[in-house]
Design a protein around this nucleic acid. Sequence first.
DNA 1: GTCTATATCATGATAGAC
DNA 2: GTCTATCATGATATAGAC
Lengths: 190, 190
Amino acid sequence: MTTAPTETRIRILDAAERLFMANGFEGTSMRQIASEAEANLAATNYHFGSKEALLQAVFKRRLEWLNGERLRVLDAMEAEAGDQALKPSQIVDAFFGTLLRMGNEPNQGGQTFLRLLGRNLSNPSDMIRTLFAAEYSDVLERCKNALYRSLPEVPKAEIVWRLHFMLGATLRHCRHRRAGSGDRLASFRR
Amino acid sequence: MTTAPTETRIRILDAAERLFMANGFEGTSMRQIASEAEANLAATNYHFGSKEALLQAVFKRRLEWLNGERLRVLDAMEAEAGDQALKPSQIVDAFFGTLLRMGNEPNQGGQTFLRLLGRNLSNPSDMIRTLFAAEYSDVLERCKNALYRSLPEVPKAEIVWRLHFMLGATLRHCRHRRAGSGDRLASFRR
DNA sequence: GTCTATATCATGATAGAC
DNA sequence: GTCTATCATGATATAGAC
């Protein structure tokens, strides 16, 4: 396993996360990342192989944690509900609430990663699109199916549209959030 | 006036609009733009002076039209309403509806500009932020004030939050819209 | 595992002929 | 107004010493 988290590796990931957020992927150079991480330029290429692979590693580290957490929350909810359908607000909270709460998690990048996420989910780059599709498919399928069951009277296409718009609102919130802007999760619970 | 719209100037603007949308600002080179516009590299710098100025020109051309149209729609609505407050759905339509309908306007870039807009409004670059702040302030103030008057029982801060979330949902829609995805404006009219 | 040094190339911009 | 030619800079990536 070559992905053992040596200490420099982590510093590089942290620096890349901050810089990709601030300046975008093309707007960030490997030199900046190495400098910010107080590592050597060649070391960054040694650890990740290429700039693209580094970006993927940045996302993968956080998304694995986030989506694992979401699945864990859904598991707990479903265990409690028995064979009853979950409430829509529960499913929304498992998906969006877990995302927003990630900003308060120590060791998970806090607001920095959320803002990077909001920024890059608006990016039509093929690499990023396929990466997200792979990391998200499990959670998204499960949430969609839970919502179908929870709202049997609503057409499935309508549910997908609502998810789509909520995602847009939430990601914009992630990007533009200021410290102390408070908890707006309540807006989603109707 | 050096900004007379010569024909090459327009071709360069169109090419830059497409490429900035597809690859982002840093991800697009002046050489690509010149090639796509079938113009010379030096001509692009002659007409706009710098890459940054070209980006600003791309946005300015469309935003001036869009915000002018929004103000025109508001004027017409208020003339009809006399001294009565506009309905919330009217104001929403003037702001968001005009934006979405822009995608069907000939000679206004169609979907391309809308997707560029959605992409760059998530960009924290200082240049872009200040450009948008300048171009949008009139329309935004007027819509906000109309909403305050239209919904006197709703706290002003709550109205701002709702605008914020609607903007997120709308811009995401602009970015990811596919041909034939239909009219979802109805979702906003409650 | 980490760094020095460097190869190779693309970029934004401009000077000056026509 | 438009071209050719060129500059200085900074980009990714790698070969090879330690």
